[in-house]
């Protein structure tokens, strides 16, 4: 474990806490893409298949349970909770995310570390996480003004993978045979997808104005 990875995990946790705060405090999920939440639940479920077979550390296991539990709770809440689901922007959240799932699964069948059930699903989860934010970014562009908590949620979600890139650079220089090309390249693509969001988020922070994504 290094400071970059710990910071990355804490930033990721922060993004989830901000999202939970928004939904529970405002009893609303307006501006949140249910499809992105479903993709993230799938990412965690397919990435942590080794939850009960490989014990790394208490921290690792606890964080995996937190990520799986919170993502499923958010999907459940947006689908089933009487008050929350009424505020879901279903007519704006129309990204065809099943194509993302299919494309990522096909890619995982072609590019993976080892042709085993667990490794293919791990690669699938890495590719899917890289594109999982797309429905959310599309929804933000369509829904015009973005409320603070939603903006912070997306910001922390993007920042965590950028910190992971620093972690991979650090591990590359400090560990002999460290090679995580699948995660590294996918992480670069994932962070690049946030580039324009980060730009508008910075502008809104600098001018102390409402976050506006151009349509």
């Amino acid at each position: 474990m290094n400071i970059f990875r710990l910071a990355g995990d804490m930033t990721h946790l922060m993004s989830i806490l901000v999202l939970l705060l928004k939904i529970y405090a405002t009893k609303s999920c307006s501006g949140i893409s249910l499809k992105t939440q479903e993709l993230y639940a799938l990412v965690f479920l397919t990435r942590y298949l080794d939850l009960f077979t490989d014990f790394i550390s208490v921290y690792n296991t606890v964080m995996k349970l937190v990520f799986i539990g919170s993502s499923l709770a958010i999907v459940w809440c947006m689908r089933m909770h009487r008050t929350v689901k009424r505020s879901y922007d279903g007519q704006l959240d129309t990204f065809r995310h099943y194509f993302l799932v299919a494309a990522c699964f096909l890619s995982a069948l072609i590019v993976h570390e080892k042709f085993t059930f667990q490794e293919i699903f791990w690669a699938f989860s890495i590719y899917l996480e890289a594109v999982a934010i797309l429905p959310q970014l599309v929804l933000l562009q369509r829904s015009g003004n973005v409320d603070n908590l939603t903006g912070q949620y997306v910001f922390f979600l993007g920042a965590y993978r950028a910190l992971y890139i620093l972690n991979w650079i650090y591990r590359y220089f400090t560990e002999q045979h460290f090679s995580r090309w699948i995660a590294c390249i996918s992480g670069l693509v994932q962070t690049a997808l946030y580039a324009d969001f980060f730009y508008y988020y910075f502008i809104s922070w600098k001018n102390n104005s409402k976050l506006q994504l151009p349509a």
Binding site: R5, D50, D54, W122, N167
Partner: peptide
């Protein structure tokens, strides 16, 4: 046969 290393990252 390089055994697939355990993924120690989240």
């Amino acid at each position: 046969e390089a055994e697939a290393e355990v993924h120690d990252e989240l």
